[in-house]
Nucleic acid binder design. Sequence first.
RNA 1: GCCGACGUAGCUCAGUAGGUUAGAGCACUAGAUUGUGGAUCUAGGGGUCCCCCGUUCGAGCCGGGGCGUCGGUACCA
Length: 500
Amino acid sequence: MAKDKKKKPQRPKAQNPRGFRDYFGAEVTERNAMLSRITEVYHAYGFDPLESPAVETVEALGKFLPDVDRPNEGVFAWQDDEDWVALRYDLTAPLARVYAQYRNELPTPYRRYSVGPVWRNEKPGPGRFRQFYQCDADTVGTPTVAADAEICGMLSDALEAVGIECGDYVVRVNNRKVLNGVMEVAGILDLSEPERFTTERGIVLRAIDKLDRLGPDGVRALLGKGRKDESGDYTDGANLSDEQTDIIMNFMDARRDDGAATCVRLRELVSASEIGMTGVLELETIAELSEAQGYGSDRILIDPSVVRGLGYYTGPVFEAELTFEILDEKGRPRQFGSVAGGGRYDDLVKRFTGQEVPATGISIGVDRLLAALREKSFKNNSEAGPVLVTVMDRDRMVDYQTIVAELRNAGLRAEVYLGNPKNFGNQLKYADTRNAPVAVIQGSDERDRGVVQIKDLALGKALAANIQSNEEWKAQPAQFEVARAELVDAIKKMIERANG
RNA sequence: GCCGACGUAGCUCAGUAGGUUAGAGCACUAGAUUGUGGAUCUAGGGGUCCCCCGUUCGAGCCGGGGCGUCGGUACCA
């Protein structure tokens, strides 16, 4: 083909790198509003804000050492002189570093919250990005279960503070020690040989975590021989015997009507295991404390089927789940599922100091929670636009800029039209696309008479709902005239009325 | 990682037994109409038809390979 007819410049593709996305207008303001409500709750519980850099040394992040072959596995890492550094992949590892570094100056227990983006160098999936927000609160330096119970209560408060009502969510609590007890009873945990059966335990953990998605039969398959999914992919199972599988399945099914009854059932299941009994005791304490603070089982629920997939938890684990259903675009019911998770991890700081530092905390999945809120509030993501000051005479920009400055000084969001003012209609079209509530118009005629025209665009739009023909539309100006001096007050009133 | 669908303008998509200069709607820009918003008219800009190799006189279309997007599944500090 004769492609050489005209030499064309190679244009850069206007596209973000895979796994990263852009956030516009309301997406950003809504998220900010949500985060500030959550952090207010954290703050009220006595937690201090902490802002640490987005970049940490790879050494401090742990686990992923600068392997020459694949230094970027999991994280975005690069070499800074001799040292390897990386973007943080969560907010917990930086906390461990900060606590170890400043342990002499920080109070113990140290309670802090942290909000910000984190990065993971992984293949992005549906709804999963390589940059996303986390909103964490952790208590470092105390082993008391009261700290865990407090985190659960605080999570409950935070969810209600952002507008999720009691009954539309539940904080489910379990304890890894109970699970370990069950595995001990099932014969896949031997405390004298902790390394044995690590693979099996990992599979069991992840299998239980998938209960809601795969159902009991799917989990049973994963505990036994393994499972083949619809796409033909095969997942290895833990190869447990039927008896062992039953023990695990009984455990997942141990939930009763209230925390006390569930704990009674758990005692039966793990009575042969010391660590299991310790775990049950902790669960009972959490249930008791929660109850005493007014969080009934409609808010905080002991649920043995919660395990969290991750391996580093050592005690209580929590998960907040939204329970209301949403119909997707095809009318099928869909659940939002987990929006926050956390638990106790007692070994993170040890890497730095050599001392055991128990810690417990929670991480809220900001983007998921935001999506849920948006669905629930009927996607009102049409943010109010600015007041638009139109340009009738292009050599009177000074006048228009004066008006806009007055509006801004009065606390109103406002802008002057900066496009080509030649076609006045285009200015109002622009106001429409900006979702502007009001347009201000002043031509030479109005200027001479010391007045301005105020056009109520929101009202006009509302009136237009019943309008069929273009003539009728034109006949409803939804517009009035005020003295120039009263401009700001008039608009202020209009906007207040519209909001109110 | 594995399975599947898809890849043509900024967006949504047409297209053809392989055949000149690849189209539409929306969006954008500019002019008709010298001061009034949703569907007035006209014109214009904008494309390596995902990339490479092959078949062919000729490939957006056919074949092979690759990359990417989306969905499912696995993994996830």
